[in-house]
Design a protein around this nucleic acid. Structure first.
Lengths: 215, 215
DNA sequence: GGCCAACTGATTATCGATAATCGAGTATGC
DNA sequence: GCATACTCGATTATCGATAATCAGTTGGCC
């Protein structure tokens, strides 16, 4: 494997994120600096800096002289995420609805279509990607960059949700739960959009309860 | 200046944060790696890693080959923070109230007292510190670490508020606006506490409008 | 046999030096 | 006179090597 573009640190970061998301590095796995150094043919400094960044992004955690490992998302942390997401997305819906761009409405519609297709293929990961993008679009549309940053900070854990829920949910039904949100936005009704989004998130939060102790 | 304890990176980070908070490094100032290297008698690597961390913490921002500078908090960003704080603290109040610890109630009361004393001394910074601690206590009491993290992510900007509002507000009145929150918590009424906290934050958000373009 | 200390291999943390890049000022050609 | 190319000083990005630390293991001692 070779890297070319400048600012190695960024490229190294992308490689590691890629591997965490596609499962090459499983949660709990160690990420050894010198191993990456050898494999990528770079020196240790940019690898270390990439790891610092990833730690801040909560992809990994590390202790002095003990190295880094892929972050283990606990069940507790995952369920704790939902109330916060609910609060932030209620705000996002509330702010986004009044001035929502027709273009964005079309994009949201298309994301729902993509979710449905993924659902029919039983493609859980595909569903998750479009689901995440759907919500991200709304948060962006709210036009508040602090809100977007806060929300993005949660995404990581939410993303790993794949591994937790790993089955037994009706994917098509999940895709369809996004329709009321789109409707509320179409009406440009901020209060309604906020409420619907909150309910949407809380619904999934609740669906997760009763799972296994942690993981 | 000399450093002793291990993990230089952490110590360097503290030095820089210290200087940003006490004004030695003003917003917009460059933070030059080699200057710190010389001054602290360390090598460049730990300095760079510290800067990566600080960038993630939003204390500074940097561009490749262009260096790092102390983050300039714009008026826009500051006002954008308030709706997010309002949403998060409403949630915090809602979650904290039902099971609030008597001990915590006493601590909150004492923070209000401290705010009043600071207000009477016209000590704006002192007021801010106890104000922040008051809110932090409640967010902690909510018992949701994801919420606490999200909220902490906003703190930095909020802190810099001192320099923006820099005067013309009745400090004693500010201190007293915390009393209704304490009351709601004493009643263990989650809905009420949430509402009161939201109103409290929004009130300050609104007070900031009409300020200068940016800063 | 059990326990503590010194050793060992693996890994991270730091160093000092070199390469790459930027911005400004200067020279050059028209 | 003006735009473009070039050079230089300052600074960041990367490198290769060394020092510090940790976890497991071995050896001696009771």
């Amino acid at each position: 494997m070779t890297l070319s573009r400048s600012v190695l640190r960024e490229q190294i970061k992308e490689v590691i994120i890629q591997r965490i998301l596609d499962g090459t590095y499983a949660p709990g796995d160690r990420v050894v600096e010198l191993a990456l150094v050898q494999e990528l043919g770079v020196s240790q400094a940019p690898v270390r800096e990439a790891l610092r960044d990833l730690e801040a992004m909560r992809f990994i955690e590390s202790e002095p002289y003990r190295g880094a490992r892929v972050r283990q998302v606990t069940h507790k942390e995952l369920t704790e995420t939902y109330p916060v997401r609910a609060a932030l997305e209620e705000l996002a819906g509330h702010m986004a609805a009044p001035g929502v761009d027709n273009n964005v409405l079309r994009m949201l519609e298309s994301e729902i279509q993509n979710m449905l297709e993924a659902a029919r293929r039983k493609d859980q990961h595909g569903l998750l990607v479009h689901d995440a993008r759907f919500h991200e679009l709304i948060v962006e549309q709210a036009g508040n960059s602090v809100l977007l940053d806060s929300w993005s900070g949660l995404r990581i854990e939410a993303y790993t949700l794949v591994s937790v829920v790993k089955s037994n949910l009706d994917l098509v039904a999940i895709a369809n739960t996004h329709l009321p949100i789109l409707d509320a936005l179409r009406q440009r009704d901020g209060d309604l959009a906020g409420k619907v989004m909150r309910a949407h998130i809380e619904h999934f939060g609740n669906t997760l309860f009763g799972g296994d102790p942690d993981a």
